[in-house]
Design a protein around this nucleic acid. Structure first.
Lengths: 216, 216
DNA sequence: GTCAATCATCGTGTATACAAGAGTAACATT
DNA sequence: AATGTTACTCTTGTATACACGATGATTGAC
């Protein structure tokens, strides 16, 4: 638990939203949250203000807070931006790669390989996250890294859904291989292009996402 | 003034920061702000929490809030991301352009032309902002538009500084012309490439920025 | 004279109290 | 029976009170 309750609550509620414990559209009652976490309304309100600023919830004046429901269209737009940012991160990583980042990418990449060959979707999900974060870090751009991490967190639930699609796991890994090759070869343009394709959800992958969202 | 004081204060303090009324590194005393705006500490705190979540200030536990000083390096990174997002907006705009957006872009573009030929740097600054916002809107991606607007706001002070550089005004406008041509021609790749170059601060333009920042 | 330790003061963190608007249900009127 | 109005309740918005930690000053010792 963080040093101040407000910060802690923000993370707690954020995780609850991202893990779908609080469903989109659900009303967040301040008093309910306060009693649930054993605190007063004040830090709860401060946490909600922050989540509103981030865009995870919407506080309608005098009418309380509700979890935002992005909807398929907006999620597609978020993936579109994510693809662009990851592409930039990849191109910068290819140009600026140093030994430390190279090792981090190689290590997370091999963890992906193990999980993929074992067919372990959950393990791959975590290894995949580390792999992408290693690329963000390798971009040597703190701001870009922060933006990527933040957007990645918001898309995490949907990225997970995507992995459940048939054959997506092995396809994803082979794309990783090409990305690693491009970055290690210093080919920024190619890394950018591949990452855009890897992250974006073009064509049928969008329908797959909508279908798995509806399945819940 | 918005319907609730907290929201209003957030905008008020945000503007004060972006207009450099509160300098980077400056301490924001809750009680001082409260008396200045004639409210209690509660809504002030809520506003500060939101600004912290956005990244404009940093709240160190038990030690108060300070305005974040991005520093030249980080500002460069922010422009880098901004260039990428604007490039995406431009490419989408080129592909999806409809009559309404086309007229909005043409209108703001001609306002830029008037200001540029009059040599009015301030007027160009405002017209330029509208021009870029017209492109964001033309992308037909709400999420991208929001991200662009938000980042644009944070970079606004520095964009203004850039315009003061010798000849930058006419150079900027001629770049606009090429961008408009590409978008209207439906050439997404070219629009992306041009916007990246137009927004980014490569090479000497970065030194120019650092110099004008130091001049204040 | 300088450094360290302790105490005082100031500001933040949280709780609670109070005010006011929005939702809801019941009653009356058509 | 349906609709409109009114009153009540519940939740949010703001203020204030209190507690605790951090910073700084002062005093003492070396």
């Amino acid at each position: 638990m963080s040093e101040n309750v407000g910060r802690w609550l923000r993370d707690e509620i954020e995780n609850a939203i991202l893990s779908n414990e609080f469903s989109p559209g659900e009303r967040l009652d301040e008093m309910v949250l306060a009693t649930r976490f054993g605190v007063s309304r004040t830090p709860v309100r401060e946490a909600l203000m922050q989540l509103d600023a981030i865009g995870l919830i919407e506080i309608r004046p005098r009418r309380g807070a509700v979890v935002i429901d992005p909807g398929p269209h907006r999620i597609y737009q978020m993936f579109e931006v994510m693809a662009e940012l990851e592409g930039l991160a990849g191109s910068l990583a290819a140009r600026r790669l140093d030994e430390e980042s190279r090792e981090a990418i190689a290590a997370t990449h091999s963890r992906c390989e193990q999980s993929a060959s074992a067919g372990d979707s959950d393990a791959y999900y975590y290894a995949n996250e580390e792999f992408h974060k290693a690329i963000y870090a390798a971009s040597r751009s703190d701001f870009l890294e922060e933006q990527c991490v933040q957007l990645h967190r918001r898309l995490r639930p949907y990225r997970r859904l995507q992995l459940r699609v048939r054959n997506r796991l092995s396809t994803s890994f082979s794309e990783h291989c090409a990305i690693v090759d491009a970055i290690f070869a210093g080919d920024g343009d190619e890394a950018r292009r591949l990452l855009r394709g890897h992250v974006g959800i073009q064509g049928e992958r969008f329908s797959d996402l909508v279908a798995s969202m509806a399945a819940r």
